[in-house]
Design a protein around this nucleic acid. Structure first.
Lengths: 214, 214
DNA sequence: ACTTTCTTGTTGCAATTGCAACATTTTACA
DNA sequence: TGTAAAATGTTGCAATTGCAACAAGAAAGT
């Protein structure tokens, strides 16, 4: 996977960060990043850790809008953070480089080779992000819980080319990510188990079907 | 809205297109673009027209995965086009510039000022695209048809700052875009009408509520 | 090790939704 | 202008889902 400073020497990286007005921050687990993103047009590049963007409706329904991992980016400009329903929270100790997005488009170093490398890397990361969102939309546009689960499995299967799917978080989180009711999801997983399509042991789901069936 | 050749002179644009190996194509309405995107890592920039990416399940359910308008981009790399269930179709006469995506990252002109402008514009367009997908995810993660509709209205309301929402296409297309059953959507729209929240005349929906209520 | 908190499993029930079928209206186009 | 095709409105019904509530199990913290 492309990283934001690929093909940029440590020395040039320093120059670049300086001219982009970048700031490095470290956050402990379970910290809200709300205040950092609200002001202005800022993007954050996660260099270490794991962050979730969560929406909690007025009736209490929790939805995972986005999951951010290492080398991922987020920001006022490219993330859903419209109103008070949203929260960005670190789920591990996390390191983030904040950059003023405007400076990417207007800084003095635009003709330098390291700047060009940087924008290329940024393009790649954006492309990855668009793809992730496409996958998400693929899942969410399926009409039944069963099909959402199968699509989710299918995407991970293709990514790792393995019948074993290891949940990154809890089943509760999975339900919130798929935007479905947890108990209804459990019910459907049970159906899939009883039909012999999957097997579940802890956080490991084994796909027992040939993907071409579906 | 940022356009892909903003701040690039016609002359430099020609040079750029040449070094990117760009090709211009014109398509009539209702043409499938499948064959153009399948091979290699290609992106298309729509300079005129309107295109839909459609998924049709084995059971016949149609879903609008993506709508592409002028200055929008799509491609093997950034669009959902995985398998035979998908189709890209022009819904109007459409002009598209195809570029080999690899050349954007490796062409000879990377140090030229017009190349830098181009990548900046591309970054902006990618940002817009990510935002559009976020909006889509916002809608799709709502659990009821009612809330999906209200979220959809809310997004358009904020975009145009107008109580009047003009459907770009048919109600059938709207249902396929929201990934819900058309008749169930009609039913819910009827409810909203009867509750005095909206008014419908042809393709114009009038919002009769204060957005803060919801 | 013990207690508390979080997660998972389960179930009944009401609400929502998808599906099918058909009538009516609108649009496209020959 | 007339006809076919597409879009919209409507409804009954079965299937799916969300919600609430609670039991059991696992994990975390002291």
């Amino acid at each position: 996977m492309t990283k934001i400073f690929d093909n940029i020497s440590p020395r040039n990286k320093e120059k670049l960060l300086l001219s982009l007005g970048a700031h490095n921050f470290t956050f402990t687990k379970d910290t809200s990043l709300q205040s950092f993103v609200k002001e202005g047009n800022i993007i954050g590049i996660i260099t270490k850790g794991y962050v979730q963007i969560i929406r909690t409706d007025h009736n209490g329904t929790r939805t995972i809008i986005e999951e951010l991992e290492e080398e991922d980016i987020f920001g006022s400009n490219i993330s859903s953070l419209k109103n008070k329903e949203y929260n960005i929270i670190t789920k591990e100790d996390t390191e983030i480089i904040f950059i003023d997005y405007e400076k990417i488009l207007t800084c003095d170093d635009t003709s330098k080779s390291y700047y060009i490398e940087f924008t290329k890397n940024l393009l790649e990361i954006f492309t990855t992000k668009i793809n992730e969102k496409n996958e998400r939309i693929e899942i969410l546009t399926k009409k039944t819980i069963r099909n959402k689960l199968l699509e989710y499995f299918s995407i991970i299967f293709k990514k790792h080319n393995s019948k074993y799917i290891y949940l990154p978080n809890t089943f509760t989180d999975l339900a919130d990510y798929l935007a479905i009711d947890r108990s209804a999801m459990t019910r459907e997983l049970k159906n899939l188990k009883e039909e012999g399509l999957i097997e579940i042991k802890g956080k490991r789901i084994t796909l027992l079907y040939n993907d071409n069936w579906i």
